[in-house]
């Protein structure tokens, strides 16, 4: 676990894996993962994605949760290009009650803290569909510069949508402590969800694996 101001980074497993079967089929996932084809993700596909990210030597999927342990969503660093110390950063909010909150913003800041202050990257890339105002505002608040617009780049619900590109450089990152102090992050006060039912319990009644 890496502890932040409003959220902590934790392994993407247990409750996260359970919630992910729902999250990975919701619009927020496809808004975050602009290159993906819009299609249903059955249990197997969700499991495979987690496994793929666990084996990924150039990236990782990390969960983020409130200080009460309420899972919010995930952050992904990916396509690490070691020669030039560059990564792509992706934030997705699974529990949409947290969309636009300072907890969600802190998820992004914690990802930046990790890649700049632990992995030593030089540059972080981020992208947003042109209509995704919440994400774009987060990028600005986190200190990203808007670097350009890929015109009519992505097919979305019958139209071609522009893709906005952002970049943040290591010498522009003030440090996690400084930026969180500047932004004066405040908790949203959202009540934690009840814990999800354990799959094994649901299937077997006793909660034990057969034989």
């Amino acid at each position: 676990m890496i502890e932040g101001k409003l959220v902590d980074l934790v392994p993407f497993e247990d409750d996260f894996a359970t919630y992910f079967e729902q999250w990975m089929n919701e619009e927020s996932w496809f808004r975050a993962r602009v290159w993906e084809r819009r299609e249903p993700h059955p249990e197997d596909a969700v499991k495979k994605f987690i496994e793929k990210m666990e084996k990924n030597e150039h990236g990782a999927l990390i969960g983020f949760q409130t200080k009460d342990g309420d899972p919010i969503g995930g952050v992904i660093w990916d396509h690490e290009w070691t020669r030039v110390r560059k990564v792509d950063a992706i934030l997705f909010v699974g529990d949409m009650r947290y969309e636009g909150t300072d907890e969600a913003l802190d998820g992004l800041l914690m990802l930046l803290r990790y890649v700049f202050e632990t992995r030593g990257v030089h540059r972080v890339d981020a992208a947003a569909l042109a209509f995704d105002e919440v994400r774009i505002e987060f990028y600005h608040r986190a200190g990203f510069s808007h670097e350009g617009t890929l015109r009519q780049h992505v097919r979305w619900d019958g139209d071609y949508v522009d893709l906005e590109l952002f970049g943040l450089l290591e010498d522009e990152w003030p440090g996690y402590e400084q930026i969180t102090a500047q932004l004066d992050l405040q908790p949203s006060g959202i009540e934690p969800k009840p814990k999800p039912e354990k799959k094994d319990e649901k299937k077997n009644g006793s909660g034990q694996q057969p034989g």
């Binding site: 020669r83 030039v84 560059k86 030089h122 670097e147 350009g148």
Partner: peptide, 19 residues
């Protein structure tokens, strides 16, 4: 359409990436 600042390193200098 876009200019990724100091995206790549060539012969000791950072250069932009162009889209």
């Amino acid at each position: 359409e876009s200019r990724a600042r100091r995206e790549t390193l060539a012969d000791g200098q950072w250069h932009d990436g162009l889209f």
